[in-house]
Design a protein around this nucleic acid. Structure first.
Length: 467
RNA sequence: GGCGAGGUAGCAGAAAGGCUAUGCAAGUGAUUGCAAAUCACUCUAAUGUCGGUUCGAAUCCGAUCCUCGCCUCCA
């Protein structure tokens, strides 16, 4: 029985999809004006794992996963101007970069990836509905605002009260707003800004309405899961609820999920603080799967402290797992009906506890290693299980040799000794070993070690990996 | 100020009212020409602090200290 922590009720609940034949999940994706950082990697990985498990439980064809792209907003416009570039060219470029990163991280494609600019009609329609129903008003300056005080449940998701928000108000009140808490649905265009025609003149949508319109269009008025980063809970998701429920008169998402932050030195990693690393920077030094593994070592709602030391640990752990798989033929993997599969399901059923899945992988790796030299059939059996189980959370999908031989030097573009050179040196060393010339044998091993290549003589063969 | 999350071994990080987390690191043995890898074994918590409930609490309750997040664009 799958249980999910629902931020709307602030407790773990049994997950009951509205329609088990079509489980629907919407996740707030990226605003594409720059490279993705590790915080983005976490959302991608966390919800990818959730998506995979929903597919496991309900069947691949019975889950619809939508992750949007915000491709029009202030920052995009500002960046495009800085670059002297059309905003579409800019967002197109960074969408490609994002896909590059998510592929590297082993993220499955969502079923739909709606872009705000392609849903302008639906956005305008929803704003109009809100105006018609009296939840929104057009101000003198051409902007359209949502009147927060009209929506009774405002604050339900974030646990905030309108009075508290007023007391803590720190934003200068814009004249056009009737109430400082009101937020913009439609922004009138300034000269030279990209704009779309609307009943209120040329302009562009506010950020919150984009997600309301896209999720409703793609998944219907009422759907199962809405996710995103912690920081989106307020105001973004709160506003989405206010917009969608006011517009449709129906309940919006049933379950709200928010992943915790990536931190650096106990501080939130974010663009505004400037203390972020991009995925691209990190994957120059580490295999992207190392980053994925690192993310999965902690529960998705906990904060995650990033450091090279943590990635080194993750890398060592993955090396152990891949070393077990190395040299074993993986045959028709099917782990269902095994205790291992059950253990993984138990862990995942408990609010997607990926950290509890990892020990299962190590148990299996141990079995493989145990039988590797003595019982090939058993080794193959456990290797197949390991591979299959790991794939449930998107791990161990690479060829073991490729992972083990791809050290940071290779990733950084500086290969150092080539594979051919290494093979030649190993051959030389083996000649020396046959002649019992240990000095020469060790010299070659040390020479390679100095270049980050580790030799391992086991089972009569010498294999190598990069550090 | 309002609201929320959390404080677990050298590090990271699960579980959780009595039953081995796990990984990395460390130690011992087997193996190895020596290593590495692997296997077996070992090792570290009186689970922030102080009280309470209980036969028994890290796990429940109260207090307290500390850290972090949201309240502004942000995954």
């Amino acid at each position: 029985m799958l249980q999910i922590h629902n931020n709307l009720t602030r407790q773990k609940e049994e997950f009951k999809p509205l329609d088990a034949n079509n489980v629907r999940m919407y996740v707030c994706g990226m605003t594409v004006y720059d490279m993705c950082h590790i915080g983005h990697a976490r959302v991608l990985v966390v919800f990818d794992v959730i998506y995979r498990y929903l597919c496991e439980v309900y069947g691949k064809d019975h889950v619809t996963y939508v992750r949007n792209i915000t491709d029009i907003d202030d920052k995009i416009i500002a960046r495009a101007n800085e670059n002297g570039e059309n905003f579409n060219a800019l967002t197109g470029r960074f969408i490609e970069e994002m896909h590059h990163d998510s592929d590297a991280l082993g993220i499955l494609s969502p079923n739909q990836e709606p872009r705000a600019t392609m849903y302008m009609a639906q956005i305008i329609e929803m704003v109009q509905t809100l105006v018609d129903k009296g939840f929104a008003y057009a101000a003198d300056n051409g902007d359209v605002y949502y009147a927060v005080s009209k929506f009774e449940k405002y604050g339900e998701l974030s646990g905030k009260h309108i009075e508290d928000l007023r007391a803590g108000e720190r934003v200068a009140v814009e004249d056009a707003k009737k109430d400082p808490l009101d937020f913009v649905l439609w922004k009138a265009a300034k000269p030279d800004e990209p704009s779309w025609d609307s009943p209120w003149g040329k302009g562009r949508p506010g950020w919150h309405i984009e997600c309301s319109a896209m999720s409703t269009e793609c998944l219907g008025h009422n759907f199962d899961i809405h996710g995103g980063g912690m920081d989106l809970q307020f105001p973004h998701h709160e506003n989405e609820i206010a917009q969608s429920e006011a517009a449709t008169g129906e309940k919006f998402a049933n379950v709200w999920m928010h992943n915790g932050f990536v931190r650096i030195d106990d501080e939130k990693m974010s663009k505004s603080l400037g203390n972020f690393f991009t995925i691209r920077e990190v994957t120059k030094k580490y295999d992207p799967e190392v980053l994925r593994y690192f993310i999965l070592t902690s529960h998705y709602r906990s904060p995650l402290n990033y450091s090279d030391k943590q990635l080194d640990t993750a890398k060592a752990a993955l090396t152990t797992l891949y070393t077990a798989l190395r040299g074993v033929e993986i045959t028709a993997p099917d782990s269902r009906d095994t205790e291992y599969h059950q253990r993984v399901c138990n862990a995942m059923d408990d609010d997607f506890n990926t950290a509890e899945v990892l020990p299962v992988l190590f148990d299996l790796a141990k079995q493989v290693n145990r039988y590797k030299d003595s019982n090939e059939e058993k080794a193959k059996y456990f290797a197949a299980l390991l591979s299959d189980i790991a794939s449930m959370i998107g791990l161990l999908g690479q060829d073991p040799e490729a992972f083990l031989r791809g050290g940071s030097s290779v990733r950084g573009g500086d290969e150092g000794v080539s594979a051919d050179e290494i093979d030649a040196l190993i051959e030389q060393r083996n000649q020396a070993r046959i002649a019992k010339d240990w000095a020469e044998s060790d010299r070659i091993r040390d020479e390679l070690k100095a270049q980050g290549v580790v030799l391992e003589d086991s089972g009569g063969v010498t294999s190598w990996r990069r550090e």
